[in-house]
């Protein structure tokens, strides 16, 4: 039961408290770039979640079964980024060949994820935090869902901003960042809630 509680806390805290985009600032590029329309934001969010899960499922065993066994821990960075880049390319080719429908929905976002700092960040963080395999997978799922949630909320906000009259210096990116600030502020309300959910 304790194990289950830990998993739930990891999941909820990575969705709400340590939200990758709004609190840790990883994956800001797609967050600002691809959040103009809600369907694009959803597609990107789902694609990131899928890639995070697959990347963690591959990099965790490699870190513990290959790199640590051989004393090559310092190669973590190079190995992980190459694995992620290769995986994403393979996934894209696979989707293109076997599921054109899915490719149109998700595949188009995959090239953008190759060098996404959120994906590399989540795999490295899972190792740094000392999570076991199941905890790592849950944490990746949480981070992906948190990313999706932030993207969808933010695309809603942006469609409202596009229609409003903004002073010239604030047009475009400046307003986008300030709007992101308010969403981030709202998410700070979750601090302290999740840790005490079972207390």
């Amino acid at each position: 039961m304790d194990m289950f509680k830990t998993l739930i806390i990891i999941l909820l805290s990575s969705v709400f408290v340590d939200n990758y985009v709004l609190n840790r600032f990883l994956g800001i590029c797609p967050f600002l770039g691809v959040s103009k329309k809600i369907n694009q934001a959803t597609g990107m969010g789902v694609a990131v979640t899928v890639v995070m899960l697959i990347a963690t499922a591959v990099t965790w065993p490699i870190q513990y079964l290959v790199l640590n066994k051989l004393g090559l821990g310092y190669l973590q960075n190079i190995v992980f980024i190459l694995i992620i880049a290769t995986l994403v390319q393979m996934l894209e080719l696979f989707l293109k060949k076997f599921s054109p429908a899915l490719y149109n929905g998700l595949g188009v976002y995959l090239p953008l994820i190759t060098t996404n700092c959120a994906v590399l960040g989540v795999t490295i963080n899972n190792i740094n935090d000392g999570y076991n395999f199941i905890q790592s997978m849950v944490s990746s799922l949480g981070c992906g869902l948190g990313f999706l949630l932030a993207m969808v909320l933010f695309s809603g906000l942006r469609s409202r901003i596009d229609e409003s009259n903004i002073p010239a210096p604030f047009k475009g990116l400046a307003t986008t960042l300030i709007a992101a600030c308010f969403i981030s502020l709202a998410f700070m309300g979750f601090v302290g809630v999740v840790e005490n959910i079972f207390a």
């Binding site: 609190n23 210096p169 400046a174 960042l177 600030c181």
Partner: peptide, 19 residues
């Protein structure tokens, strides 16, 4: 010093550079 502050300062600086 918290996360939202960073976004706000960055947004304001970009607006300032524009001016």
């Amino acid at each position: 010093t918290k996360a939202p502050g960073g976004l706000l300062v960055y947004g304001l600086l970009i607006a300032l550079i524009y001016v």
